[in-house]
Design a protein around this nucleic acid. Sequence first.
DNA 1: GGCCTTTCAGACAGTCACTTTCTCCAGCGA
DNA 2: TCGCTGGAGAAAGTGACTGTCTGAAAGGCC
Lengths: 212, 212
Amino acid sequence: MTGLRERWRLKTMRTIQERALDLFDERGFGAVTIEEIAAAAEVSPSSVYRIFGTKQGIVVTDVEFDSMSPEALESILDPADPIGSLLRAVRSYESPDAPSSGTAGDGPQANRSPWRRVRYFFAEPSVRMAVCATLDRAGERIAPLIAATGQMSAAQARVVAKALAFGYFAALEQWYLDGGERPIADYVEEGMRPLRRIWATPQPSSGADHPA
Amino acid sequence: MTGLRERWRLKTMRTIQERALDLFDERGFGAVTIEEIAAAAEVSPSSVYRIFGTKQGIVVTDVEFDSMSPEALESILDPADPIGSLLRAVRSYESPDAPSSGTAGDGPQANRSPWRRVRYFFAEPSVRMAVCATLDRAGERIAPLIAATGQMSAAQARVVAKALAFGYFAALEQWYLDGGERPIADYVEEGMRPLRRIWATPQPSSGADHPA
DNA sequence: GGCCTTTCAGACAGTCACTTTCTCCAGCGA
DNA sequence: TCGCTGGAGAAAGTGACTGTCTGAAAGGCC
């Protein structure tokens, strides 16, 4: 039984995000002010900053993932096969409804899929920067989990964690650039395949891997 | 022979960077305004923005690397062994004088090594964000070079390029966190070793690799 | 070397993201 | 039911950044 305050916070978060995206879709990210967003969501500008920190945070913040506890993250991410874990997470996240309209179909009340925000990750430079910062932090979170397996040193775990986080970002961008036709999981699986070699046990019987 | 205008620009760039770092070291990044930096460098605030774009740009911009032509980059980076190329670049960059004082020794007119800026990459969040954006762009530059080898698809080259750029960042941070005692190249070599497997030909005779 | 064009530094005003502080109400525990 | 407290709202301020304009110096042309 969560408190009333937290309920209000979560509901307000979603309201602000949706109203903000409505305005961004309508007039562009840069042409909308925080005051307008706050007015549209019927909260004070202070609340927007208290909740999201920055204007880009409204787009970047992922309510369920960012509030995930370290334990929950640990239960999802298998340090021995992080790419497989990532794929599973992406597939379950993607399942509800297909993204369908990638660049086409820019209607005001467009799809409410979680991928609605993703467009701005790549279209708006300042948002892209904020996404990079978020991935950076994500890397810091998963590095200790990888290091805990004892397979690598702390420095190597750090490098690999960053490679995973930003490799995923690269795959996502490829999906975006292709217009969002095929499911994202396909891009993640294909794009990140070279990284799988990091965990590959040296066996002579691994088949052809690289060509697209 | 380069024009007078370009000469002025380069000289001004270095002046602004050094004066700005003097002020940052003295009072902290956030406590120094652009106006003060401009005054200290004896230029107008407009010029600071025209040259560096943002306040963080003053710290992040690497004069020689950022102005590197695509051809020069191509001549340095061997797509078949990017990590080896990176190591060579780091070693030649690091050679002039050792960084010595990492966290200790915060004197006003500290060392003038190219690593003076690096401290702020990790100490100042907004600068760190800008560094991430720069690495992101660096990834975009090297991805086509990797894709040109034909070993991977475009998506895979994109992923690997990002992994390289941010893996280097992770290694650099490990160096910073350790206090900058050992040379950076050591951290790059050790930290990025797992990424080498991406290019490893499947041979059963590869020895032990992982422990630190 | 003198003229014309272009480029760019400087000045200035404006916008808005973000911070800080204060007040006050309502949720929460006793 | 009664304090206590966390948090929402209001408001003023700061400074990073963006345009626009003007004048002067650089660079090309004869």
